[in-house]
């Protein structure tokens, strides 16, 4: 029995004064013994999270899509969060994972773009440069065992060339003509590949929107951390456009026939 109320609820150090016989001023010190660990907090897990981001290459450039939900665990906490963010004139980044880390990324990228803008010499940062910079930041943070808990898509269009690549909390990068993060990597990526691969230079914007709607709908049906409100971004020779929030139509009539879902008596 530990007789010292100040120790109650704290981890006990049985190796030292197991019966609490020492007078109060000599109370056992149950603090962590690792001096380097005290006072430092590192990211152990994401808290408020976004789910999938989807992106594809089409005729005019890049299209990206993400829903507007920020979840707190399984709670649909914020339903009007924008997860697509323009960076400079040629680039959009989309984020899954921790929303506060994403807000931090938005902040330092904005600072970077402002600094770049002040030089006014025509050497603008394009999507490839932004992606490289992000990958270096993400890898540096994971190497400090304090990662920015995101998986990011970077899409852009500059000098007649489209760019699409992925980077995540480990600093892993890859590039393809269709990309999806989170659950989208399993549920949407097969659809995107089937619809897009080999047709990157032919797909029109309307066709690309239709493909995105299909994928967002599948994700809304099967990913419990998604909602039916989403935004589309296009990056083309005309620059960056991010749409207002859109709504995906769904049909639930089939559910009545599913046993255990509706009001069934037996």
């Amino acid at each position: 029995m530990d007789h010292f109320p100040t120790n109650w609820g704290r981890p006990r150090n049985d190796a030292y004064d197991a019966y609490g016989t020492f007078p109060l001023p000599h109370r056992p010190n149950n603090d962590t013994k690792d001096a380097f660990a005290s006072g430092v907090q590192r990211t152990q897990q994401p808290i408020v999270t976004g789910t999938s981001v989807l992106a594809l290459k089409y005729k005019d450039g890049i299209m990206m899509a993400a829903d507007n939900l920020a979840s707190y665990g399984s709670l649909a906490r914020f339903k009007d969060v924008q997860r697509l963010h323009p960076v400079g004139k040629y680039t959009v980044i989309g984020a899954g994972g921790d929303i506060s880390d994403f807000q931090y990324i938005q902040k330092f990228l904005e600072e970077l773009i402002i600094e770049e803008f002040t030089s006014q010499d025509g050497h603008d940062l394009g999507p490839a440069e932004i992606h490289e910079y992000l990958s270096q930041v993400m890898y540096a943070r994971r190497s400090k065992l304090n990662p920015l808990w995101n998986s990011l898509l970077v899409g852009g269009f500059k000098d007649g060339k489209s760019f699409l690549a992925y980077v995540d909390l480990l600093g892993t990068t890859y590039s393809a003509s269709t990309l999806a993060t989170g659950f989208g990597a399993y549920l949407a990526q097969p659809i995107l590949r089937k619809e897009v691969e080999g047709k990157e230079t032919e797909l029109t914007e309307d066709e690309a929107i239709r493909i995105m709607e299909t994928c967002i709908r599948v994700l809304y049906y099967r990913d419990a951390r998604s909602i039916d409100k989403y935004q589309l971004a296009t990056i083309t020779a005309d620059g960056v456009k991010i749409s207002d929030s859109r709504h995906i139509s769904t049909s639930w009539s089939f559910a009545e026939g599913i046993r255990g879902y509706g009001a069934q008596t037996q």
């Binding site: 030089s119 010499d121 050497h123 940062l125 490839a128 440069e129 490289e132 910079y133 270096q136």
Partner: peptide, 12 residues
């Protein structure tokens, strides 16, 4: 080169 994978602009 490291940060941006871009050859530094000569004027800068």
């Amino acid at each position: 080169k490291m940060l941006f994978n871009r050859p530094v602009p000569v004027n800068r």
